[in-house]
Amino acid sequence: MHRLKDFFLFRELAPHWAVVVLMAILIPALTAKTEKPGEFYPFSNYPMYDSFEPATYYVKVTDTQDQQVAIGTTFGIASSDVKKAFDRKLIAAKAASGGKIKKADLPPEIQQKAAIDVLQWLRTISPPDQKARVDALHGLRLHRVDITLENGDLKRQSKPVGEIQY
C-alpha cells in the first residue's frame, strides 16, 4: 500500500488526480445520455483516436460542377469539424432508427438530409468576406470519401451524398 501511494502520490498530486477523476469518470458518467458523452467544454475524455478501425471516411465540399472548394478559407472552419457535424447527424439518425443499422448503411435519403443540413449550416457561417464568393457558386455539394483496407490494400470510394442550390 505504501509503495502504491509512493508511486501515485495521490496526496501530493491531488489537483492532477482530481482532474483525472473529473474527466475520465465523473463527466463521462454525467453526460452519458447527451449527444457527446465525456465532453463538457473545456473538459474532455479525449475520445479521438481511441480506437483505430480498418475503415474510415472524410467529407469534402465542391460546387455543383464538382470543383473542390477550400473548406478552411471559404467557410472559416476546419474540415474535420465539417466531418464531425455530418457524422453527428448520422449518429442521431442511427439512434432514431433504433441503433441497429450501421451509419454507412443508413438509407441514402437520410444521408442526403444530413449533408443538406451541413451545407446549409456552412453557408450561414461563412465569413463576411467570403459571402459573395459562396453566393457566386450558386450551389454546394457534399461528398463522402471512404477509405478502407481490403486484402491488405488501400481502397478509396468517393460519392456525392447531398447538395443545395441557391
Partner: peptide, 21 residues
Amino acid sequence: NARYVPLHMLKNNEMKYAQSL
C-alpha cells in the same frame, strides 16, 4: 489496432487538402 494508423493518416492529410487545397 495501431496497425490501421496509415488509413487515418491518409484521411487526415486528405481532409487537410479539403480544407486548404
